[in-house]
């Protein structure tokens, strides 16, 4: 989880940031013009893939009971919609509680490790170690220890979501501009003031990049934890339809999970725009 995470963090530089790096007003107008074109291509690709899939399954190239056609999936989605929603509610609740606590823990860890060098030395290796343990491996343990209710799910989500937040915030805090920090010191600023005026706002960009990752981890973490035991939630729904070999419903729930992740990431983007107005007025 550690290495791909780093790659993900690098890839989450927002479009706006990239635009700014390119610089130049002319270039910006140019990229705005071609933005509509940028959106056409992925949509087209998805339509083509869906078309191939539909043909493959309606011509009988792949047996229907193994790979349902997109239309079958859509039907299953509509028929099971109420059930899917009630399960999604449970999963989302777990994801939100876990994410909230994970972000809080991640934030606290980053602040403490930035403030106290000893804390950093003592805990950083341990934190990296927690991420080398596969989620799927500890989830059953958590279920055995904490039962079939919400607690083990929330704990698992905290474990997977605090890490991106800690790493990126810590990086942000540590890369605060030295000259700026010195200037504030010369103005008599305390360490707390330097944190609130320089380090924290300067790390917001990195924080939101990590939040986008944590959000999707939270949903996936909740589903995995539900697989291994629980009474409701999308993961439980998934194991049930799997046992019934309802492939169409399997696809419907996969689709729902990725839609939820996408919506949540979009929500993080909106939140970022709200919290970082200075990025907007170029």
């Amino acid at each position: 989880m550690c290495l791909p995470l780093k790659r993900k963090l690098q890839n989450t530089t927002s479009k706006r940031e990239r635009k700014r790096i390119q610089g130049g007003r002319g270039q910006e107008q140019f990229s705005r013009k071609s933005y509509a074109g940028e959106k056409v291509w992925p949509v087209l690709t998805i339509i083509i893939i869906l078309g191939i899939w539909q043909t493959a399954s309606s011509t009988g190239m792949v047996p229907r009971f193994m790979l349902p056609s997109p239309i079958d999936v859509a039907k299953a989605f509509i028929i099971d919609f109420p059930l899917l929603m009630s399960n999604a509610k449970v999963t989302l609740l777990e994801a939100f509680i876990g994410l909230g606590m994970g972000v809080a823990v991640g934030f606290l860890m980053a602040v403490l490790m930035d403030r106290f060098e000893k804390m950093y030395q003592a805990f950083y290796p341990l934190i990296v170690l927690t991420q080398t343990v596969p989620t799927v491996a500890i989830a059953p343990l958590l279920v055995l220890w904490f039962g079939y209710e919400m607690l083990p799910k929330v704990i698992l989500i905290v474990i997977v979501t605090f890490f991106p937040v800690t790493v990126s915030l810590l990086d942000g805090f540590k890369s605060a501009d030295r000259d700026t920090v010195n200037l504030l010191r010369s103005m008599g600023a305390s360490k707390v003031q330097i944190f609130w005026f320089v380090k924290f706002p300067g790390s917001l960009g990195q924080f939101f990049a990590s939040l986008r990752i944590s959000v999707s981890y939270a949903v996936v973490g909740a589903v995995i934890a539900e697989w291994l035991g629980g009474f409701s939630g999308l993961g439980v729904y998934m194991t049930r339809v799997k046992k019934a070999f309802s492939f169409d419903k399997m696809f419907a729930v996969i689709f729902l999970i990725s839609v939820i992740s996408l919506l949540l990431m979009g929500a993080v983007n909106l939140l970022q725009k709200k919290c970082m107005p200075w990025e907007e007025r170029e």
Partner: peptide, 27 residues
């Protein structure tokens, strides 16, 4: 003892996330 005399450098060191007014009001 810092906190008595401030300085200004070649780099403006204005905080990018604060408006000019809030930057100037920082001290």
């Amino acid at each position: 003892q810092p906190g008595h005399i401030s300085y200004m450098l070649q780099k403006d060191l204005l905080l990018p996330y604060r408006t000019i007014e809030d930057n100037v009001a920082l001290p």
